[in-house]
């Protein structure tokens, strides 16, 4: 049952990932990307990472994708005609992506297989455990990421501001 669920979710993720690349309109790309994110969030639930699944949906589907949709709406990019790369470049892109995939799979095949987990701790992805680890072992990176957010916020506002002259 879980294996079939894994196959279905992987199929949905890969198919909608391909549709992100190949769909004509940017709005459809955003919508397909949201489908991919939901499939990945379901994978997180399958992997006992419930807290990350919730955060993933809130951050990606709720914040980042809305930002993308806002920008597409403001730039009025919802046009069917859009410049495309020449066929030769597209062909080269597909070849390059395929070669990268083959390289990654080949690197995976040369590794020793990790045996299936025996004494699994299914409580690892719950918010209590993650919060303990985050605020005990990773307190400094957590604080630094707040500085990063402040810098990103100021930077985004500064860049997107209209010039006076």
């Amino acid at each position: 049952m879980t294996l079939y669920l894994f196959y279905i979710l992987s199929f949905v993720a890969i198919l909608s990932g391909l549709m992100v690349v190949f769909s004509k309109s940017p709005v459809y790309s955003v919508l397909y990307l949201i489908v991919t994110f939901f499939a990945i969030a379901a994978h997180y639930v399958l992997l006992n990472a419930q807290f990350l699944a919730a955060v993933h949906i809130i951050v990606y589907a709720g914040a980042i994708m809305v930002l993308f949709l806002y920008v597409i709406m403001m730039l009025n990019l919802n046009k069917e005609v859009e410049p495309h790369k020449p066929i030769a470049v597209k062909f080269a892109a597909v070849i390059a992506g395929g070669i990268l995939l083959i390289t990654l799979v080949g690197a995976m095949r040369s590794t020793q297989s990790l045996s299936k987990a025996e004494n699994v701790n299914s409580q690892i992805g719950l918010i209590e455990n993650l919060g303990t680890v985050l605020f005990r072992d990773f307190l400094l990176p957590f604080e630094i990421s707040s500085v990063l957010f402040l810098a990103a916020m100021v930077g985004a506002v500064m860049i997107a501001k209209k010039d006076k002259n």
């Binding site: 894994f6 399958l46 992997l47 297989s113 990790l114 299936k116 299914s122």
Partner: peptide, 8 residues
């Protein structure tokens, strides 16, 4: 969960 069924 998927850990026991699906190989890594």
């Amino acid at each position: 969960s998927a850990i026991q069924v699906v190989p890594i």
